[in-house]
């Protein structure tokens, strides 16, 4: 399947965020969930199983000045193989204007046996934009070895690179499960915050040092200030999805 979906959020004169563009295409179904206060909330529904080998899915998100948008998922997506062995692709392209805010908090991506999936995110933040961005990858369903999945995340802030990283798991990746990369963990993920103080609990650093200092939340979860802009990244590995979610849940 090929699909392109789009969300455009803009603030009106009163400062209320309006969705001036909302385009769904199966299997990328977007639903605006009315909220009386706070950011506009859009839920991303998987309208079909997958992503399935051969799928080319694209989601474009634009958040204007002073607009606030939160995108959430309903259920985990499971990357599944095609009989042909074709690659599936999900590309998320994001632009957030100065003063705009995006929370991207989808559900997990699960790599099923035999899948060939690429998940690529490109996020362009103007100076003064705010972001919370969560990614969680589960390597295989219960008692299953994962297929090949590459998750790559590229974020720029005010025209400069802020975070570029990619993780490869599956039979084509070299020793990804070993002590150098995941150490046998089945769940891995990160939460990126830009101009945001919603870092997860527990907090160990003094409030004034939160932006400048790393925090070790557990032996497999740390929050790190980034080098080239006002961002921080929590990186964590865990035995399973719930434990991972616990350390990647932003504070309100």
């Amino acid at each position: 399947m090929r699909a392109v979906a789009r969300v455009v959020a803009q603030a009106d004169d009163a400062g209320v965020t309006r969705l001036t563009g909302l385009r769904s295409e199966a299997p990328l179904l977007l639903r605006h969930t009315p909220a009386t206060t706070g950011p506009a909330v859009v839920h991303l529904l998987g309208g079909a199983a997958g992503p399935l080998g051969g799928d080319e899915l694209r989601l474009e998100i634009a958040v204007g000045e002073r607009a606030r948008l939160c995108v959430r998922g309903i259920a985990a997506s499971i990357a599944l193989p095609a009989r042909s062995g074709a690659v599936s692709r999900m590309t998320v392209t994001v632009r957030v204007a100065s003063g705009g805010e995006l929370h991207w908090l989808p559900e997990q991506l699960i790599a099923a046996r035999g899948c060939h999936h690429l998940a690529m995110s490109n996020v362009e933040l103007a100076e003064g934009a705010r972001l919370l961005w969560r990614e969680e990858l589960i390597c295989g369903r219960h008692d299953e070895q994962p297929g090949d999945v590459t998750v790559s995340t590229s974020v720029t802030y005010a025209g400069k690179p802020l975070l570029r990283q990619a993780l490869q798991v599956g039979p084509s990746a070299v020793h990804w499960a070993g002590p150098g990369v995941l150490g046998g963990a089945k769940a891995v993920g990160s939460l990126l915050g830009v101009n945001s103080e919603s870092w997860p609990e527990p907090r160990t650093a003094a409030p004034e040092a939160m932006m400048a200092q790393s925090e070790v939340a557990s032996p497999t979860a740390v929050r790190m200030p980034l080098g080239t802009g006002p961002g921080w990244l929590v990186t964590a590995t865990a035995e399973a999805a719930p434990a991972l979610r616990a350390v990647l849940t932003p504070a309100r």
Binding site: S152, S154, P161, R164, Q165, A166, L167, Q168, P179, G180, V181, L182, G183, V188, S190, S214, V216, P219, T220, A221, V222, M224, T235, A236, T237
Partner: peptide
Amino acid sequence: PAELPMFSSPLADISAEL
């Protein structure tokens, strides 16, 4: 330079901080 490889290791980051 933006197109150069960006593979990372979660445990490399986590254990460097520990």
